[in-house]
Design a protein around this nucleic acid. Structure first.
Length: 257
DNA sequence: ATGGCTTGAGTGTCAAGA
């Protein structure tokens, strides 16, 4: 596949956001779009509306929480849902082959608070993801890991680093886990092009956080070296965050030659 | 001040997100 656009977007309920997603597919025409937090059971997923929009879709969902989907202009193949060998009822991982790409759509656990049970689950989940991806990166030279990582990799990705230091999404064990993924041979596509502060992918719904740009960069696209070499652009599209009833996350988009 | 919005579940009010 050449001249390929891949993207990731935490939609915070696909029921609510389907109109935004359909409009965005028309505007940006990605070949692949990974969605997180669909909050739908599989039988309620809008396969028909997406097919009419020109997209094949696979979904691993559940009621109320989590849920991941991969939309693509060609049929996804060799689908895996969940981290193999990691028993988990939470639907957070969906992998598929699209064209010459291996795509892994992920919704990392939030962790709630450092030291909580949910934080311990997040660290266990991160370790299991890394162990599995070690083999996947070896098996698939053209692999892209996209999703809501719920980790701000360093202080440039945080609007108030002092306030967030050591807090959830920014703690050192979480950042160590992000670096461990990079160390498998993956590159943060966004940082290939942007080295500065103040560019975020999530803003709290409260306190007019988006208008004041009080955000975090927690949604990422990581690429193996052969794909990073082909990557000509990576950006965060803030346009959907300005719409009525927006998701609190913005899409992240990467273009590959 | 551990709040502030938003969503889903479910019809009163709470869990969860980040």
């Amino acid at each position: 596949m050449t001249a390929c656009r891949i993207a990731t977007w935490n939609v915070n309920s696909l029921n609510v956001r389907l109109p935004h997603v359909l409009d965005w597919l028309v505007a940006e025409k990605p070949q692949v779009l990974c969605l997180q937090e669909t909050k739908l059971e599989d039988h309620r997923f809008p396969f028909d509306a997406l097919r009419e929009a020109g997209y094949h879709a696979i979904h691993s969902g559940q009621k109320t929480y989590n849920g991941v989907a991969v939309l693509a202009t060609t049929p996804p193949a060799e689908v895996i849902a969940g981290i193999p060998g990691f028993d988990d009822p939470q639907r957070r991982v969906l992998a598929a082959t699209v064209g010459d790409l291996r795509v892994i759509c992920t919704y990392f656990p939030n962790g709630q608070a450092v030291g909580s049970e949910k934080y311990a689950y997040k660290l266990r989940w991160l370790a299991a993801l890394r162990a599995w991806l070690s083999g996947e990166v070896a098996a698939w030279p053209r692999l892209a890991l996209l999703g809501d990582f719920n980790i701000a990799p360093d202080d440039r990705d945080v609007h108030d680093p002092d306030a967030w230091r050591g807090q959830i999404l920014c703690s050192e064990p979480e950042r160590d886990a992000f670096r461990a993924l990079v160390d498998l041979g993956l590159e943060d596509a966004f940082r290939k092009f942007e080295s500065g502060h103040g560019l975020y992918s999530w803003w709290d719904y409260r306190q007019a956080a988006f208008r004041r740009n009080l955000g975090l960069r927690i949604d990422h696209i990581l690429l193996t070296a052969p794909l990073a070499e082909r990557c000509t652009a990576c950006r965060i599209d803030t346009a959907p965050r300005r719409l009525e009833r927006p998701s609190d996350h913005a899409p992240v988009v990467a273009d590959l030659t």
